[in-house]
């Protein structure tokens, strides 16, 4: 449904995104995850046809977003991060305007406006001036204008930013239900959100894609560099030194917790060192109080990936 190849965008000398490549299947909900200024908005703007890439191509529903921009735009619903709306219009007249410029006419248009008012739970607010709506309701109007023409692809830039927690939950449910019969790309810097809503995640940092996978696979893949956490009583220096001697141990960190110390061991991918480590510690006569593997959360993966990028650079 969406094919992005080697997308690169410069703003003057500033490199916003570099060689971004990914595909999105029909009916998939894809999460775009990254810290601020990572290039999420730039990528989405290019896909939505707001600006062209410096190089590379992007196709939406088979149409090139630059060469066949008009055809591509007909099939896209887009909500920018700032949710720019005409604040002096009522909700209904605003949606009517958007339905018209997106090609809906007559009876079908009115029917569809009523539908989206219903879907976005704006029914009670149809004649309210947008300028008087709270941020949460404006967000709903933003989503309503994006879906009014029943686009095949929905692009939502930070759809839950700046709204209260109850509305965040509702918005996520709404996005999930919208994703049932169309392709959705959403960006976020909130990890649990992406984990909850999206079927696949792209992690982007400093303009480059650092990981693409299903949320559960991402954790599994990075379980490669699995961590073992344990609580041990004994001399810190000796424990660290002998742990580091073990084959497959990449790094050892510790923090003291009263009488005992908590050690975190980074192991090389695929190795399971639990038994060996337990053996070692017990053998040396230290007190092994607790030992467990630590599965990395999406948050850890995210931090790890983005930190790694930074230390390389």
């Amino acid at each position: 449904m969406i094919e992005v190849e080697n997308l690169t965008k410069y703003y003057g000398d500033f490199l916003a995104i570099e060689n971004v490549t990914f595909q999105v299947q029909k009916g998939e909900i894809l999460g775009f995850l990254g810290p601020n200024a990572a290039g999420k908005t730039t990528t989405m703007r290019i896909l939505a046809g707001y600006m062209p890439p410096s190089s590379g191509t992007a196709k939406v529903a088979g149409f090139d977003v630059v060469e066949q921009s008009l055809e591509a735009r007909k099939r896209i619903g887009y909500m920018p991060e700032t949710v720019p709306l005409y604040t002096d219009m009522t909700v209904e007249s605003y949606l009517d305007f958007h339905a018209t410029i997106k090609g809906l006419r007559g009876k079908k248009k009115q029917q569809r406006i009523d539908e989206v008012l219903d879907i976005c739970r704006l029914g009670d607010y149809y004649d309210v001036i947008i300028g008087k709506l709270s941020k949460g309701y404006r967000q709903r109007v933003g989503i309503a204008q994006a879906i009014v023409h029943e686009p095949e692809v929905l692009i939502l830039d930070e759809p839950t930013i700046g709204i209260d927690p109850k509305q965040v939950v509702e918005t996520r449910q709404l996005i999930k239900s919208l994703g049932r019969d169309r392709t959705v790309i959403l960006s976020s810097h909130i990890l649990p959100e992406v984990n909850m809503v999206c079927e696949r995640v792209i992690i982007i940092n400093e303009g480059r894609v650092v990981a693409v996978d299903r949320p559960e696979n991402l954790s599994a893949a990075l379980k490669g560099s699995e961590q073992i956490q344990m609580e041990v009583r004994g001399a810190i220096k000796e424990i660290v030194a002998s742990l580091r001697e073990l084959k497959g141990v990449q790094d050892v960190t510790w923090e003291s917790a009263g009488e005992n110390n908590i050690f975190t061991v980074d192991c090389s991918p695929g190795s399971d060192l639990r038994e060996e480590i337990a053996h070692l510690i017990v053998g040396k006569g230290w007190g092994l109080i607790n030992l467990q593997t630590k599965r990395m959360s999406l948050e850890d993966i995210f931090l790890k990936l983005t930190m790694k990028e930074e230390s390389e650079a």
Binding site: Y50, R73, K74, P80, P84, L85, Y86, T87, H98, I101
Partner: peptide, 14 residues
């Protein structure tokens, strides 16, 4: 100024 141009230019309009 309001950023509404972003939605106008991404709508299927010439």
């Amino acid at each position: 100024k309001m950023g509404t141009i972003e939605l106008l230019l991404t709508a299927p309009l010439r």
